[in-house]
């Protein structure tokens, strides 16, 4: 039996297994911390930073990604303080500028209440979330693709742009990619944010830290949404 620890997220007391991340614990308890690069059963790398939270320790506040933050007994976490919300919106603005053509990214923007991006649209069709790289390595033990280059040139690629023999053609890398989720039938206001999901936006703003299994979760492949089939009674 794994030891349990007690943490506080947005004032709610949560019990979770020792060693689980704060993000997993919060999602499990129904507290919605928006996330993008997180996937159930694949190791977290804290790439997208969308799931940032504030850890309050003896009056000191430190911002960090909750997916790579291990839950410790007595930890106090704020996932929806004004500072966190502001920082999270800023991060999502950056992500939108990188890949405005993604339904997942558009839904994420709607979820956190971003309606415009201050940054020039770079339209790179990749946010370097590393989902494909990790699913290939950890789920399929294949390591066919990975991050290549560094700095602004860092991108996901196959070695020498050729499919290596290790590749099992499972197509998982494509399936988990936030860029490949079927676009909504509405017009995509590209470049920009279409904002047609504003009804959803107001809903999540009214009840900011409660998971209502919103349809947006399907867009940004929220871990809880992915588990919905398993959680919902048949």
């Amino acid at each position: 039996m794994a030891r349990t620890v007690t943490i506080t997220v947005d004032g709610a007391t949560i019990q979770t297994a020792e060693g689980s991340s704060v993000l997993d614990a919060a999602l499990e308890a129904g507290i919605c911390i928006p996330n993008l690069c997180h996937m159930p059963s694949v190791s977290p790398i804290g790439a997208c930073r969308v799931c940032i939270v504030e850890v309050v320790d003896d009056g000191r506040r430190k911002m960090t990604a909750s997916c790579t933050l291990g839950a410790r007994d007595g930890m106090v976490v704020e996932a929806h303080s004004e500072t966190v919300l502001r920082a999270r919106r800023h991060i999502v603005e950056l992500i939108v500028a990188e890949a405005p053509n993604s339904r997942a990214v558009q839904d994420l923007a709607a979820r956190v209440g971003v309606t415009r991006s201050r940054y020039p649209m770079r339209d790179k069709h990749c946010v370097l979330c590393g989902r494909c790289v990790r699913v290939c390595d950890e789920v399929w033990q294949s390591k066919s693709l990975g991050f290549v280059g560094r700095g602004g040139d860092r991108h996901v690629a196959l070695p020498f742009d050729k499919r290596p023999d290790l590749c099992k053609r499972c197509n998982s890398c494509v399936e988990v990619c936030p860029m490949t989720i079927t676009p909504c039938p509405g017009p995509m206001a590209v470049p920009g944010i279409c904002g047609l999901c504003e009804s959803q936006t107001s809903m999540v703003e009214n009840i900011p830290d409660t998971c209502v299994m919103c349809e947006l979760g399907r867009g940004f492949q929220c871990a809880r949404w992915q588990l919905r089939g398993l959680l919902a009674p048949a």
């Binding site: 390591k143 990975g146 991050f147 290549v148 560094r150 290596p164």
Partner: peptide, 12 residues
């Protein structure tokens, strides 16, 4: 080691 690991180093 997988080729991507070597390629990653060489490109970095």
């Amino acid at each position: 080691v997988p080729l991507i690991e070597v390629f990653r180093l060489a490109s970095f």
